[in-house]
Amino acid sequence: MEHLLAPLVGDASPVTVIGLCKNAGKTTAMRRLMAELGEERLALTSVGRDGESTDLVTGTEKPDLYVKAGDLFATARGMLSLCDPTLEVVGLTDVMTPLGPVAILRALSDGYIQLAGPSAAGQLPPLTKTFLELGAQRVLIDGAAGRKSLAGAGVEGVALLCTGASLDRDMELVVAETAHTCWLFSRKPPENPALRQALEGLEARFALFTPEGEPLELPLDESGGPRWNKLPRQHLVVWAAGGIMDPLLKTLARRGAPTTLVAADATHVLAGRAALDLFLRNGGELLVRRELTIAAVAANPWSAYGWHFEGDKFVQALRQAIDLPVVNVKEA
């Protein structure tokens, strides 16, 4: 088999396969990657997924993954009846899902499995650590799909971003959205070490700093929300822990002084392109506390809704807009 994705992810582990929307070709990319990494002992799990075998939104079937003997995987106990390799239970985590606790299993033969791993991002790092202790050479995570589902759903290691015609009928819009997501993922942490340190472990919803990392008091209203119109008219750093939406960007854009906005990571920026553009054009700067890396973009010209793009044209358009490797997983 021609190695298409494996060279792009290199030695990175974990690799999180994420989708820009449902049916963006996440599973296809995941299968392809598993096949290309066939010599390695893999460990698989998913995050932010509910585990139903049919997609409730589109009615399309969620395909199984075919693992090889020796691979490890973590899935909810309730999914085991859908897994057909000879299985060895090697552990039981305290991660609970609607389908029971997440168990860690070793496939003693080849076979089909269904993944329903942790739903919260914080539960992934201990799990990947356990995988490595059990001898896994690389961890693959079936990540979330859709910008909103991605927020805080845990992107570990490097990401493989899947995009495709399912996002919209309009190819230009799909390309622009994909480029926007790649741009977000290329945001960097602050360069000032004092500021970086000040942000480390910060749990407040919002916090205010000078560009040199000096904490400033954030004016609050009666309900405890920030009073953005009371901010001093100087270059400020605003930390926002949760999802960043349009209103916050628009408010900060109009406050009359440059603002550096720091998000937890790229997945937390949920605002639309227009609001972000307005913020940046008014002297705004967007940084992240945790840098995420996209190793490559996997394009799927076929949608689940009946329309599709011309494969070559779609890939070419993406390549022009994005400074990252773009591959057509379906065609390859």
Binding site: V89, R106, S109
Partner: peptide, 21 residues
């Protein structure tokens, strides 16, 4: 600290699993 339905639990398991492998 692991559990699997070992071949020794049933006479038919080993040949079946060999064929499947």
């Amino acid at each position: 600290p692991t559990f699997t339905v070992a071949n020794s639990y049933h006479n038919d398991l080993a040949p079946l699993r060999a064929e499947k492998a």
